[in-house]
């Protein structure tokens, strides 16, 4: 016993010194992270408070910083995000169901299944700016095979109608929304897959043993159990869509727009674009407007995140 207790003091203290040193290093690292983020938030708040008023929320952009507002960009963001949600959620959840609930037994099909899965992983890693180029070619120009955006080969209604649609879509709300859909689709698929995977297998077996078909099993049992997880993931994906600037920048460009879109083909701008526009100007006064815009954007995103957290807490029992 005594022999055991009598440790070489040097070795012991050296080792524990390392342990304590590491704790200090860790705390320093964490402290640096927190400090940087704190500085970031503080600087944005300080710069942004100046213009954070109702004028900002109601006005169109202006050449004068004190009059500039973000209203058309907010409405533009709402429109493209609606298009994005309406298309991305069914497609994403559908793909997740295909991948998680319809795993094939046959060998060739199983291999194909693996290819689709790897493909999703790859899509999640594609830079969003590349999606912008894809959207530009596929949606805005329709591969340049069917006329051009300024001379569409096919239209419904005229530009005065709210239901005006043309092919190719041109640099409008629809093309922007669909491009955003491409960006968030892998995120929705992966989070929905995780939610479905978390559903215990016993529920699936129970449903099948009662004579459910695969789809009845999914619709009646698996999907309802996975809905909270899918909703959380989808909300986070949509908050990504709200803040995404690069692909929209390619689709819409930085245009001076003082009106809100009137139909799906109409020109638009979005909040991150407007912020980019202001931030990239040389005048410092516009940087302050950009900071105010960021505060509005962050407030919206925080609300989204809070909703996601609440949903998770509520269903996490």
């Amino acid at each position: 016993m005594n022999a055991l207790m009598k440790n070489t003091p040097n070795a012991r203290s050296g080792r524990f010194f390392k342990d304590h040193l590491f704790v200090i290093v860790c705390l320093l690292a964490a402290g640096v992270c927190i400090a940087v983020l704190g500085v970031m938030l503080a600087s944005i708040i300080v710069q942004g408070m100046e213009h954070l008023d109702t004028q900002l929320l109601q006005n169109p952009p202006s050449r004068k910083p004190e009059k500039a507002g973000i209203y058309p960009a907010m409405i533009g963001t709402v429109y493209i995000c609606l298009v994005c949600a309406v298309t991305a959620i069914p497609l994403g959840v559908g793909t997740a169901i295909l991948l998680e609930e319809f795993k094939p037994r046959q060998r060739t099909l199983a291999r194909l299944h693996g290819v689709v899965q790897l493909n999703i992983t790859n899509l999640a890693g594609v830079p969003s700016v590349v999606y912008g180029i894809l959207g530009m070619t596929a949606f805005v120009e329709l591969f340049q095979v069917l006329g051009s955006p300024s001379d569409p080969i096919w239209t419904i209604g005229t530009t005065d109608n709210w239901y005006y649609i043309q092919l190719p879509f041109g640099r409008g709300v629809l093309a922007g929304g669909l491009t955003l859909m491409l960006v968030v689709l892998p995120i929705i698929i992966i989070s929905s897959q995780e939610a479905l995977r978390a559903v215990p297998n016993s529920l699936r077996q129970g449903a099948l043993a009662l004579g459910s078909t695969r789809w009845q099993m999914v619709w009646g049992t698996t999907l309802p159990a996975a809905i909270p997880g899918i909703m959380t993931g989808t909300i986070l994906a949509m908050s990504r869509a709200i803040g995404e600037a690069a692909p929209i920048l390619i689709i819409a460009g930085v245009v001076y727009i003082t009106f809100t879109p009137e139909h799906l083909m109409d020109d638009f701008t979005a909040m991150p674009l407007q912020i980019y526009d202001w931030a990239s100007r040389p005048q410092e006064s516009f940087h302050h407007v950009a900071a105010s815009g960021i505060l509005v954007l962050m407030a919206i995103l925080l609300t989204f995140n809070a909703v996601a957290v609440i949903i998770r807490q509520k269903f996490q029992r």
């Binding site: 500085v39 944005i44 709200i242 995404e244 931030a279 940087h287 900071a291």
Partner: peptide
């Protein structure tokens, strides 16, 4: 989930 344009703004102004 913070939009990258915010980090860009931070880089430019701070």
């Amino acid at each position: 989930g913070i939009p990258t344009v915010v980090f860009g703004f931070f880089a430019l102004t701070v």
